[in-house]
């Protein structure tokens, strides 16, 4: 199915929430890969992510008449996020070694080539790029993931993270200025950002 044809998806979601099981299956198979990719970014056990996705859909199906879901996609992401953050907190507590359990959520990498830069010392450059990205907070990276890689509006992404829309705007603005500042030092001399 064409994931961009919003009209079709709206209809599908409507049928699903009205109890159409064929639509249910389609909606499930459409959103499962998206949710799975999102959930795995939290760097927890992948099978837990699948379990949570199942739980969420079963819950929605069973209480679909009571629920008033306006936008399914952010709702799904939000449910999964809540479950994962709870799980994360639980695991960190259980292990009692938060340090060991530190994980790079929403890890981003920069491929030098995709920035149009070519250099002999690739590993050194990649390291420096990674250091730049690490200056972004996990929440900033998550927002970037939702907005720019999962086609969510600021309103939807803010809803998923349970933050104000204005905060979402600020986070994205801050991300960009952080990146531009840190990348400036890396790329000085390459002539990429004339305006930095």
């Amino acid at each position: 199915m064409d994931i961009n044809s919003t009209g079709n998806i709206d209809l599908l979601v409507k049928n699903f929430l009205n109890g159409d099981r064929k639509a249910f299956e389609k909606v499930y198979k459409l959103y499962h890969p998206l949710l799975y990719n999102y959930g795995c970014q939290f760097r927890l056990d992948a099978s837990i992510v699948d379990d949570f996705i199942q739980d969420i859909f079963i819950d929605i199906w069973n209480s679909r008449e009571r629920l008033n879901i306006k936008q399914l996609k952010p709702y799904l992401f939000k449910c999964l996020r809540n479950k994962l953050t709870k799980q994360l907190a639980k695991e960190v507590k259980e292990k009692d070694k938060a340090e060991k359990y530190w994980r790079e959520e929403f890890e981003i990498s920069y491929d030098p080539a995709s920035l149009g830069i070519d250099t002999e010392n690739k590993t050194e450059l990649e390291k420096k790029l990674a250091a730049c990205i690490e200056e972004l907070s996990p929440r900033q990276r998550e927002l970037i993931f939702l907005i720019f890689y999962n086609d969510m509006s600021y309103i939807e992404a803010a809803d998923v993270l349970n933050i104000k829309i204005k905060t979402a705007y600020n986070q994205i603005h801050n991300s960009i200025s952080t990146l531009r500042k840190s990348l400036l030092f890396v790329y000085l001399g390459f002539g990429l950002f004339q305006h930095l």
């Binding site: 198979k29 890969p33 199942q54 929403f106 890890e107 990498s109 920069y110």
Partner: peptide
């Protein structure tokens, strides 16, 4: 360009996972 050049690790469900997951649901 700064946003477009970012790469998130992509986690794809294994071939049968979506189907078997749906079967359970």
């Amino acid at each position: 360009e700064l946003f477009r050049a970012m790469r998130f690790e992509e986690f794809k469900p294994k071939e049968n996972l979506v189907n078997s997951s749906w079967d359970k649901v």
